[in-house]
Amino acid sequence: MDKQGEAYWKATLGLLTKILAVWFLVSFGAGILFADMLNGIHLGGYPLGFWFAQQGSIYVFVALIFVYAKKMGEIDRKFDVHEE
């Protein structure tokens, strides 16, 4: 792989790592591992851990995919590998 290609792939993996970190934190973190702790805090009538498991993580997932699509498009153009 040439230098340009390597840099592109590195940038891609960097973005994936960041997004998957958030993905993990909201679902496995807030929704499961720390749910009990977060349940002490309330969001309206929702205990917060319960909210993350049954509502919050889904909203974050949707946002994550759109952020990914946008950032990935920027990386594509920066390294000039985007589609016509």
């Binding site: 998957l20 993905w23 929704g31 498991a53 049954q54 993580s57 994550l64 699509a69």
Partner: peptide
């Protein structure tokens, strides 16, 4: 039951990214 909700939506993130 949240495991169904997180599991069946969170998979789309993996699908879209990976």
């Amino acid at each position: 039951g949240g495991l169904f909700l997180m599991g069946w939506t969170g998979g789309y993130v993996l699908l879209a990214l990976l």
